[in-house]
């Protein structure tokens, strides 16, 4: 009875705290020996995920572990460890979850090469369409079935269409800027 609102409120508190964590920017003040070290620190802290937060990198988390891990990265940079060593350190303890840039393994090949694969498939499809379209005569004769209204200006007969094309081609060759068809376009 009384317990329920209290529980709800604390649950809510936890949830809002989790979100509100993000609204509080944290500030570490570390002393670096060189600007390059500071840059490395920022890059690394950006690439590691905070293990306890709701999806934030180490730079942008206020969680306790995040602060500890940032300090650890700082210490290791000062100690002279390389980026790879630091990354391996994190991997050994927290697993792949902690890397925002997934490692390339057998299981992530589809992830990393998927987009390129999509692109290649897409190019293949597009070329197929272009080839098919160029092979077709303009004004598809098979355009029937559900077609009822005119599609643009294809309400001309084939002869008229050919004449129009010739005229347009002439105009194109002589004076491209007066091609009304394209100036009236609204490609958006």
């Amino acid at each position: 009875m009384r317990l329920f609102p209290v529980l709800m409120k604390s649950l809510l508190l936890v949830c809002t705290m989790a979100f509100a964590m993000m609204a509080v920017a944290q500030v570490d003040v570390f002393d670096f020996e060189t600007a390059e070290q500071e840059e490395r620190f920022r890059q690394l802290a950006n690439e590691f995920r905070c293990p306890m937060c709701q999806n934030a990198n180490l730079t942008h988390s206020t969680g306790g572990v995040a602060a500890d891990l940032r300090r650890e990265i700082y210490n290791q940079i000062i100690d002279g460890r390389t980026d790879e060593e630091i990354e391996q350190f994190m991997l050994d303890r927290y697993g792949d979850f902690i890397l925002y840039r997934p490692r390339l393994t057998v299981q992530t090949i589809l992830l990393w090469f998927g987009p390129a694969l999509f692109f290649i498939i897409g190019i293949w499809v597009v070329f197929g369409i272009i080839k098919r379209s160029a092979a077709n005569s303009r004004g598809n004769e098979e355009d029937q079935g559900a077609e009822t209204a005119a599609a643009g200006s294809e309400d001309l007969t084939a002869d008229e269409q050919a004449r129009l094309d010739r005229l347009l081609a002439d105009k194109l060759a002589n004076n491209p800027s007066t091609d009304d068809d394209s100036s009236d376009d609204s490609r958006r």
Partner: peptide
């Protein structure tokens, strides 16, 4: 805790 992979 870091060595243990603890986060809370």
């Amino acid at each position: 805790g870091i060595d243990l992979g603890v986060y809370g």
